[in-house]
């Protein structure tokens, strides 16, 4: 029982991080039908940016958090303006290859700026872990879960209740119709990029105190996030949340009860199975049959 609980706690923490990354994929896909393979690198930029601001420049934590997220959002803004919008024939395959190129570029920049060594940051709060029937629950984990749920609610409210959010959804459904009704289509894409990269940075900053950060951390995290987004159904916010948590818990249970050597195999096996059996994901069906 103690072990089972511990696996679930650890899975929830990891799952929550995957979920935030998956949210970033879903926001962008929902608005532009584009998958940004550089998303993991934005997570890396957020994490290492926070370490530099907080530990390096000694900026107070709260301000450093905001600055790191805003800074990465700015990079996302520049990415869209310089690398995506300038493409003369924006076909999906071209754009996806651009994002792959951007991921290699950003990783290189990360290596030059932060070096090849890993970095770590102390915990945000120094509370002792909570003991639940022998299993240890980290205060940090609760905080991460809280952030993820709050973020999902906020984004949900943004897309369903605000005019801008609705305009973004409209622009993704039909570019031409949105344009006819006066929605500035290009601004919506830009906003989607900024929102998506900012959530990537959020994933980065919440992960810093619980693990080690290095310039090449983004690749695997990006893949796991993508996996979660697919699992939940690309474009669906709640799907991203559920997909992330399911993936994290399954990974952890698999490592605990089967073998830790199969941890990544579980994630990617699941991705293959989902693509094969239910390509639209757990929550994706409704989304696909919108018309």
């Amino acid at each position: 029982m103690q072990e089972l609980l511990q696996y679930i706690f650890s899975g929830l923490t990891n799952g929550a991080i995957y979920a935030v990354i998956a949210l970033g994929f879903s926001i962008l896909y929902g608005a532009t039908r584009l998958i940004n393979f550089a998303h993991g690198e934005f997570v890396m930029l957020g994490a290492l940016g926070l370490i530099s601001l907080w530990q390096g420049l000694k900026i107070p934590l709260a301000i450093a958090l905001v600055l790191a997220v805003l800074g990465v959002a700015l990079i996302g803004f520049l990415f869209e303006r310089l690398a995506i919008r300038t493409v003369s024939r924006p076909e999906p395959i071209v754009l996806i290859i651009i994002t792959v190129g951007a991921s290699i570029f950003l990783r290189g920049v990360g290596m030059l700026v932060w070096g090849k060594d890993a970095h770590s940051a102390p915990a945000f709060f120094s509370f002792a872990p909570i003991d639940v029937m022998g299993a240890k629950l980290l205060v940090q984990s609760i905080w991460i879960l809280g952030v993820v749920v709050a973020l999902t609610f906020a984004l949900h409210a943004f897309f369903k209740k605000t005019l801008v959010g609705k305009a973004m959804t409209a622009a993704s459904i039909s570019k031409k119709a949105a344009w006819l009704t006066g929605i500035p289509y290009e601004w919506m894409i830009l906003l989607a990029f900024v929102l998506s990269t900012a959530t990537g940075a959020v994933a980065g900053v919440i992960i810093t105190p619980i693990t080690m950060c290095s310039y090449d951390m983004g690749t695997l995290l990006g893949l796991k996030g993508f996996c979660s987004a697919m699992l939940g159904g690309l474009g669906s916010l709640w799907g991203a949340l559920a997909g992330g948590i399911v993936l994290g818990v399954l990974e952890s249970l698999g490592a605990g009860f089967l073998s830790s050597g199969y941890k990544d195999a579980i994630a990617f096996g699941l991705l293959l199975a989902i693509l094969y059996i239910r390509p639209s994901g757990i929550f994706g069906a409704k989304d696909l049959h919108r018309f």
Binding site: S10, I17, I210, S252, G256, S260, G261, K263
Partner: peptide
């Protein structure tokens, strides 16, 4: 005997299994 990936961010599951 347990293992972990070079880039894994959390080894709680493996440690829990060993502790058992």
């Amino acid at each position: 005997e347990e293992s972990f990936g070079a880039k894994d961010t959390d080894m709680t599951a493996q440690l829990t299994k060993i502790r058992k």
